[in-house]
Amino acid sequence: MTTTEAKLVKRPRIPTTYIVALIPVAAALNIVGSTINAALRLPTFLDMIGTAVVAMTLGPWWGALAGLITNIGIAIIRNPVSLPFALCNMVGALVWGYGIRWKMGKSFGRLLILSMFVGFFVSLTAVPIYVLVFGGATGHFGDMLTATFVAMGQRLWVSVFSSNILVSFTDKIISTFVALAILGALPKELTSHLELVEQKNLKTVIWITLGIVVGIAALLFIMFTNIAG
């Protein structure tokens, strides 16, 4: 009897099976998410929702592994050139994972800020890859935004970063809150140790995201016209 009580007090370690199960599901979700994103022509990427789930529940480095495996999977089934973007996915995982550890998930506002941090750092990693390897192109609708900024006289990397950060913010805020909703549906053993806010209605999140992104976009346009003029 005493042993049972002792077990109840200390949180049982998450068995490796959960880890080994969660990561491929997350990676596959990332890949399917990005495919559907392309099919529905959404202004996001949706290729890091799984990463967010793993980083939040299992921790930053497991999240990074999920990110790496996502890109290995894409390389095998689709195309190997996207392999460098493994780095972005991993950076995102680290920010999400450590963010949650440092209690950035405790309130809605904090989580929103954490998502934007993720977006920022992911863009910071992605933009050099886009500029150096892909000449600034992403193959995404965001390229039109980049072209607009270039037309306004901005340098290529500034334009790529500006358009990428807008897409990134949208994507990461939405991904964070979808991940939060997924956490609610996971077995309790996996999530009981987390300090997280209640789920939010996704519609609200989408409206808030839209507000933030349109705001930043407007700011960028004003800035760029002033610099150019």
Partner: peptide, 9 residues
């Protein structure tokens, strides 16, 4: 009990 969480006696 190795791969399923719970209490075993």
């Amino acid at each position: 009990p190795q791969m399923v969480m719970g209490e075993k006696e």
